[in-house]
């Protein structure tokens, strides 16, 4: 474990510092948006959005390498698909006739299928594993600015619209009766969730996104009496899972994402058992 701190301080190994910094900075949107996702009970929607992102990643790579659009790439592709997926899910939610559950299932797998097709059509070997399971150690300096920008956007919008989001999550019908534009608010909340997931995919990968989005918030929810406290708790829990997960995975030479998730799951199990015994 001590070696982890030595390497962290080593000026010749910048990637570990970037990884840690990005991880800790991204704990902020994870905790805040994760709390909304948990109390609004939309973690299956978050799952669908995250799996959809593979279509954006594959499409972005294809456009960049085959079509030659240099401004495209996996991250911008993922962003576009994330917002499209959020729009489809919001639409399905408000069209009474649409079975929301079926739309979630369809998005989930169709997104994966399209992504894999694009990856197969893109020359040169692209390992889908790093997108599916993430690789925090591939994170560079440009990602850090990206995360900082997202921190500002998520914190700003969540702070600005907090009373409205709270009303929407608690009882959307009542929020509508107070004259709030609940459809737009729901779409905005899904967009924020989608943007957070794009970031999350860089850290833990598509498959494990839901765990890192929901577990810290669920853990904090076992203790917090208000949603503000839940968010702070979730941010702190998320940051410590990322920090400890990186330290453990470095020391034991294990992949980082799975270690972070297992830590979060174990903590959730222990805190839930404790609070159910009480």
């Amino acid at each position: 474990m001590l070696e982890f701190f030595t390497v962290l301080a080593d000026p010749n190994v910048p990637f570990l510092r970037y990884a840690l910094l990005v991880g800790l900075l991204s704990a902020i949107p994870f905790g805040i948006i994760g709390s909304y996702v948990v109390v609004r009970r939309i973690s299956s929607l978050a799952g669908a959005i995250s799996h959809c992102l593979l279509a954006g990643i594959g499409g972005g790579l294809y456009l960049e390498r085959v079509v030659g659009w240099s401004y495209c790439g996996p991250v911008s592709g993922a962003f576009v698909v994330a917002v499209v997926a959020a729009a489809i899910l919001a639409w399905a939610h408000f069209r009474a006739g649409q079975r929301e559950d079926s739309v979630i299932g369809a998005l989930w797998s169709v997104g994966m299928a399209i992504g894999l097709l694009f990856l197969a059509a893109t020359p040169g070997y692209t390992d889908p594993m790093s997108y599916l399971f993430g690789n925090i150690l591939l994170i560079g300096q440009s990602d850090m600015y990206f995360v900082l920008a997202l921190d500002v956007v998520v914190l700003g919008l969540a702070a600005f619209f907090h009373p409205q989001f709270l009303a929407l999550c608690f009882d959307d019908e009542f929020a509508r009766l107070r004259g709030l534009p609940t459809n737009w608010l729901y779409f905005l909340l899904l967009c924020l969730t989608a943007m957070t997931i794009v970031l999350l995919v860089r850290v833990v990968g598509i498959v494990m996104v839901i765990a890192l989005l929901t577990l810290p918030a669920a853990i904090a929810g076992n203790f917090a009496s208000g949603i503000g406290g839940m968010m702070v708790g979730a941010v702190l829990a998320c940051a410590s899972f990322i920090f400890c997960g990186m330290a453990i995975s470095y020391s034991l030479d294990l992949p980082t994402g799975p270690v972070i998730i297992c830590l979060a799951a174990l903590t959730y199990l222990i805190t839930s058992l404790k609070s159910s015994i009480r």
Binding site: V39, L166, F170, F174, A175, L180, I227
Partner: peptide, 16 residues
């Protein structure tokens, strides 16, 4: 849902 009774009532004060 982590919310106090007062905060639930405050939702009734929301305006457009």
């Amino acid at each position: 849902f982590p919310i106090s009774a007062l905060d639930v009532v405050l939702l009734g004060r929301l305006r457009k």
